[in-house]
């Protein structure tokens, strides 16, 4: 497993990333607002680690992953990969960098071209980015199929002939084709059956070890992220609210949202009654119209007055632990004062 004590090299540095999608309305298609899918997100990903990115649907986690790979033209912010700034590069220049950064998609059915054979699919990036001969490509495709546990003799079959788990293996082989350093895995197991999920997760772990890969693992499955990730970032309504090493985050979550999220995960143990289960009221607000102050203030069980006025800063409260909450990181007297205020209000 990845060792956090040794100062690892930063491979990806995201700072102040914003991805807004404009809303147009009226007959002149006037710009009336923005869906703030990703709103000022900053984090580092170390070489060789897996950063888990969790959150509920619509929180912006997938958009964040896609924005980091510059599948969008980002609204603001900087993205550095291996020291190189790619936030403002034009798509033509990005093309040259594509081999280092790849993606595995959620739906293996939709992300594989149904008219291409497995060999065609896995070989496509090689055709685009290398000058390999046909025979070399075939050899490389076979090598990749071995690596992901697909039988070589299936290389001229079409995606529909495979099961979901096998299709995901094809998608992973394609992502590996150009020897990338960094792979964004966007919900790679969400569409798979329980007994197949473990197969794919183990494969991803094996490949990481073998090829020294760095993953951004996006998922809504908190238990699977706990298993695969070294550090975990929790997103809510376009912002990262907490980021910490896996053990700290699951052992002692700090942000009220992280706590609620973890306590909502049903545990496969009928004897376990979770005494302090937090059931959040209401729904996630629209990212087109987030609340004033802290984004979570409308549902937070520990909300204070300041939360409705000021957006909390995302800051390091313990070494390696970041949280965006007014309950942490302020001076001690301030905090007790606020807590008293909250108690009297309750």
């Amino acid at each position: 497993m990845f060792d956090l004590t040794t100062k690892a090299r930063t491979l990806i540095r995201v700072s102040g990333l914003k991805m807004y999608f404009p809303i147009h309305a009226g007959i002149f298609r006037r710009h009336v607002g923005d869906v703030k899918a990703v709103d000022d997100v900053s984090f580092d990903i170390y070489e060789g680690e897996t950063l888990g990115l969790v959150g509920e649907s619509g929180c912006g986690k997938s958009t964040c992953g896609r924005a980091i790979l510059r599948l969008y033209d980002i609204t603001a912010g900087s993205i550095q990969i291996d020291g190189q700034e790619i936030g403002d590069l034009p798509q033509s220049a990005l093309r040259k960098l594509r081999p280092t950064m790849q993606m595995v998609f959620q739906d293996p059915q939709a992300s594989l071209n149904p008219r291409l054979t497995v060999e065609g699919i896995i070989g496509e990036p090689l055709l685009e980015h290398t000058s390999m001969s046909r025979a070399e490509r075939k050899a490389r495709v076979h090598e990749l199929m071995d690596a992901v546990g697909l039988n070589r003799s299936f290389s001229d079959r079409y995606p529909h002939e495979f099961s979901g788990g096998q299709r995901q293996r094809i998608g992973i082989a394609r992502a590996l084709a150009l020897n990338p350093k960094f792979i964004v895995c966007d919900e790679p197991i969400a569409a798979l059956d329980v007994s197949i999920q473990a197969q794919v997760v183990n494969l991803l772990e094996d490949l990481q070890k073998e090829f020294g890969l760095t993953y951004l693992f996006i998922s809504h499955d908190l238990s699977m992220v706990r298993h695969i990730a070294d550090r975990v970032a929790v997103m809510y309504l376009g912002k990262v609210v907490e980021l910490a090493p896996e053990e700290a985050l699951y052992g002692e979550p700090l942000h009220p949202y992280t706590r609620a999220l973890l306590s909502a995960v049903p545990e496969p143990d009928p004897d376990l009654t979770i005494e302090d289960r937090i059931i959040l009221k209401g729904d996630v607000p629209s990212p087109a119209n987030p609340p004033a102050g802290c984004n979570f203030c409308t549902r937070c069980p520990a909300v204070m007055d300041i939360c409705q006025r000021e957006d909390p800063e995302f800051r390091e409260v313990q070494p390696g632990r970041f949280v965006a909450c007014h309950r942490y990181g302020q001076s001690a007297e301030n905090k007790t004062e606020n807590e008293n205020e909250n108690e009297t209000a309750a």
């Binding site: 329980v194 999920q197 238990s223 699977m224 706990r226 298993h227 995960v265 376990l272």
Partner: peptide, 11 residues
């Protein structure tokens, strides 16, 4: 096969 959010984490 299923991982847990509480208790021990499987290697």
């Amino acid at each position: 096969t299923i991982p847990h959010v509480r208790g021990k984490r499987a290697e």
